[in-house]
């Protein structure tokens, strides 16, 4: 069904991809992108990737994960991200990479990955769909170990203001549905995030998107201040669910109001158990107590 598998010799450089994307954005200011109304039928693939132990440890320390030999689900996301990015940076990708908003991220972590496992990473884009604010797309990344797929992540992005012909406007359901008013629960945790957190997460994840790095670089891209990586907040919530989640789970997060840095984020994590008293799922939500706005909401659940 897929027409093409692009073999990448190594993990692509995210900074190069960002530069390409910036150049592409600049080019588009002059001549609008034409033709691309459908997603490329291509899978990008990198073979034999190994996590870097020092970077993994730094990641674990930053996110509050125990420094085990098992690689956290969020780190695998970071590992696969350049491959996913390389798909979105393709010339034939129909949406502009820069300014894309991360709406949702869903991960299935099926089998624990050890830091010295040799991994295969494959990424592709699918499900181009209309959104009330533009067009959204799902980028899927799959990681396979020696025995088959171990991790699968689906990231939903929104290209704001990009409306592609032939894509229907959304109905009353889906991401465009009007959100009910947010009533904050009692916090179970409070995150004090300094402006450094963007740079620090960039350092361990490799995601040097300028909107996270500094006030100046964020302003250059039209934001009033830098914002925390969505995946930082999601990964920290995942870490704080704790050891009860085990090594295999489904991890789902939706991003709402961006976290402008520095920030105080109130967090609630609520655990649910099954009839036997065993852990079933933990729902988490993060919000700004002053503004009453929700930053993210999600869950970690037992893999059924």
């Amino acid at each position: 069904m897929r027409e093409e598998t692009v073999e990448l010799p190594e993990l692509p450089s995210l900074s190069k991809l960002y530069v390409t994307a910036a150049a592409e954005a600049a080019r588009l200011l002059i001549s609008r992108r034409d033709g691309g109304r459908r997603l490329p039928d291509a899978r990008h693939h990198v073979a034999v990737v190994r996590p870097d132990l020092a970077r993994l440890t730094a990641y674990q320390h930053l996110l509050g994960e125990p420094a085990r030999d098992v690689v956290p689900a969020g780190y695998l996301h970071a590992l696969a991200f350049p491959v996913a990015m390389s798909v979105m940076a393709r010339e034939d990708f129909p949406l502009p990479l820069l300014g894309m908003v991360h709406l949702r991220n869903r991960v299935e972590y099926r089998d624990p990955v050890a830091y010295d496992d040799a991994l295969d990473i494959t990424a592709w884009a699918e499900n181009l769909a209309a959104h009330r604010a533009g067009t959204q797309v799902e980028v899927v990344a799959e990681i396979a170990g020696g025995g088959g797929p171990v991790w699968r992540g689906v990231s939903s992005y929104l290209a704001k203001g990009a409306f592609l012909p032939g894509i229907d406007k959304p109905g009353a359901n889906g991401a465009g549905a009007q959100r009910e008013e947010f009533r904050p629960p009692l916090p179970t945790a409070l995150w004090r995030l300094g402006v450094d957190i963007g740079r620090e997460y960039a350092g361990v994840s490799g995601d040097f998107n300028p909107i996270h790095l500094s006030v100046l670089s964020a302003r250059a891209l039209g934001l009033k201040r830098s914002i925390a990586h969505g995946m930082y907040t999601a990964s920290r919530a995942l870490a704080e669910v704790g050891a009860q989640k085990g090594d295999s789970f489904v991890w789902d997060v939706s991003f709402e109001a961006p976290v402008f840095l520095p920030a105080m984020v109130s967090v609630n994590i609520a655990d649910a158990v099954d009839a036997d008293g065993a852990w079933e799922r933990s729902d988490f939500v993060g919000w700004n107590a002053t503004a009453g706005r929700r930053h993210f909401v999600g869950s970690v659940a037992r893999l059924s």
């Binding site: 509050g64 916090p187 179970t188 945790a189 409070l190 995150w191 004090r192």
Partner: peptide, 20 residues
């Protein structure tokens, strides 16, 4: 004086218990 795992100070934790 914040609890390492929650970032909430002991007083903030107690405030929740007090309310509960």
């Amino acid at each position: 004086t914040a609890e390492p795992r929650t970032g909430l100070s002991m007083g903030e934790h107690q405030a929740l218990t007090t309310k509960q």
